[in-house]
């Protein structure tokens, strides 16, 4: 792999067992992530988008090894971490941190803000002496736009946007190289979302961070990403740089997803032909044969039912669809 990449994921498989009955007899498995490959370059923002159940969050958790992996390879910063033990992962996780969706559920209500932000330093034995520790917390708080004297307060005293800043400060404590952001703005009020998006972009520029960004809000994704991969039922169906994907989406699912996003402009909306994607995401327990999207695809061919399309790279985009083979 090239040194340019901070993360490379090859043919990732995550299967969950399906059990039945009192004795939890294993009767099968579902492939939540089924052969996902991508790489993230240093300093860029790579987004995974898709509907709920498409496997985007499972993919992210696997990268952190917070989810056990069934198959494939995860290479982080030049090291294959797929078989790393929990102890080895602990050290690796200094370099990759996570920001969660719900800033209400991800902060311990009994801990003061300063202690929350400093916890990663204490866990990894990097706290130093008291003075260094407090100085580090103060500087982290300043970085994310919180006031120093807020360190003595508890999470319930903060609004959603400020809590998300606290989560970001905590994620930054260990100077990570990669931050995984799982729907970091979707739980926030509209007027606060822009503040957090701006903060994430500003931090990336100042600290040279790399983001793996998971979201379903495509306008936010377009705003923040360099490259985007669209997932459907555990697979990446299209991956391209931002402009290519948003200007000339190729996969019928990507097109449908983009068409479903309402734009904040009534006149534009009136002109847009409403093209609805039919049905809902099928169950992973019995995924459709061939291309898993064929049951909802308006352009499905007879072959789509029988054969799974293999991904094909065409210029700057990679796409798995029979229409493009």
């Amino acid at each position: 792999m090239s040194d340019n990449n901070i993360l490379e994921v090859k043919d990732l498989q995550v299967h969950f067992p399906v059990t039945e009955g009192l004795l939890k007899r294993r009767v099968g498995s579902i492939a939540a992530v089924n052969g996902v490959s991508f790489h993230i370059k240093r300093g860029e923002t790579f987004s995974l988008v898709g509907e709920s159940g498409c496997g985007k969050s499972t993919t992210a958790l696997s990268v952190l090894k917070m989810q056990s992996v069934t198959g494939g390879q995860i290479i982080f910063d030049g090291k294959d971490i797929t078989q790393h033990s929990p102890g080895q992962m602990r050290r690796i996780r200094q370099k990759m941190q996570m920001v969660y969706q719900d800033p209400f559920g991800s902060l311990n209500p009994r801990m003061k803000i300063g202690s929350i932000i400093g916890e990663p330093l204490r866990i990894h034995g990097l706290a130093g002496d008291k003075e260094q520790y407090h100085a580090r917390i103060a500087s982290l708080m300043k970085t994310v736009g919180l006031l120093k004297d807020m360190a003595e307060r508890y999470p319930h005293e903060f609004s959603g946007g400020q809590r998300q800043r606290i989560c970001i400060a905590r994620a930054l404590a260990l100077d990570p190289k990669l931050i995984i952001c799982d729907e970091p703005v979707s739980a926030l009020d509209v007027s606060i979302q822009a503040q957090v998006v701006n903060l994430l972009m500003d931090l990336q520029e100042r600290l040279g961070l790399t983001y793996l960004f998971i979201a379903h809000d495509l306008s936010v994704v377009r705003h923040i990403s360099n490259r985007v991969a669209v997932m459907y039922l555990g697979k990446i169906v299209e991956e391209a740089d931002r402009d290519t994907l948003f200007r000339t989406p190729k996969h019928p699912y990507t097109k449908a997803l983009l068409a479903a996003v309402p734009e904040a402009d009534p006149e534009l909306e009136a002109q847009r032909a409403e093209q609805l994607i039919i049905g809902e995401i099928p169950s992973l327990r019995s995924p459709p044969s061939g291309c898993t999207f064929h049951t909802r695809c308006s352009q499905a061919l007879p072959t789509c039912k029988q054969y799974e399309p293999s991904p094909r790279t065409d210029g700057s985009s990679t796409i798995a669809c029979h229409l493009y083979t």
Partner: peptide, 17 residues
Amino acid sequence: ASIPKLDGDPGSTLYTI
């Protein structure tokens, strides 16, 4: 002004309240 638009300028600083 604070919501990113699909035809907006990506990467620019969003207007914030």
